[in-house]
Amino acid sequence: MNVLLMGHPNVGKSVFFNRLTGANVTESNYPGTTVDFTKGWMKIDGEDAELVDVPGTFSLDPKDKAEEVAVAMLHENKDAKVICVIDASKIERGVYLALEILEEGYPMVIALNMWDAAVDKNILIDINNLQRILGVPVVSTVAISGEGIKELTLKLKEAKPIKIEDIVKNAGGLT
């Protein structure tokens, strides 16, 4: 199985990658630390899966060379599952990227990362409701301390392709 770690720059993808594979990818507190993809192996239910740390991208419409690498990675791995990492305190724009990836038919799990920072900012997210609308597993995580990582890998096998029409319907239709 192929798993891609995707999300905006500086949401903690490399931290996830190191947690999940035990590798040593550089992590920094500024956007753009990962400009090339890195691959590693992780275990899901005793099965080997290849995990790719994809450079951060805001959308699937690339704005720089690192984003081009990200979009190319996604399109080269048609049968991959995606872990979409979203900054829990900036959920709207994170969901934008998630929707774009879902529209292309990729099965997905969403990690609402930096959950602790969102709690500090008094931002409350109804995870169950979000899960219901999007139809994909949503897990709150604090990658840096390892919270939620285990649950995330367990949910990975529940990920399946979603019809956008269903999301629209669950959200109560478009205006």
Binding site: E92, I125, A171, G172, L174
Partner: peptide, 11 residues
């Protein structure tokens, strides 16, 4: 769509 989702899930 995001606007609708956010209204229902984020406070």
């Amino acid at each position: 769509l995001i606007d609708k989702i956010a209204k229902q899930t984020v406070t």
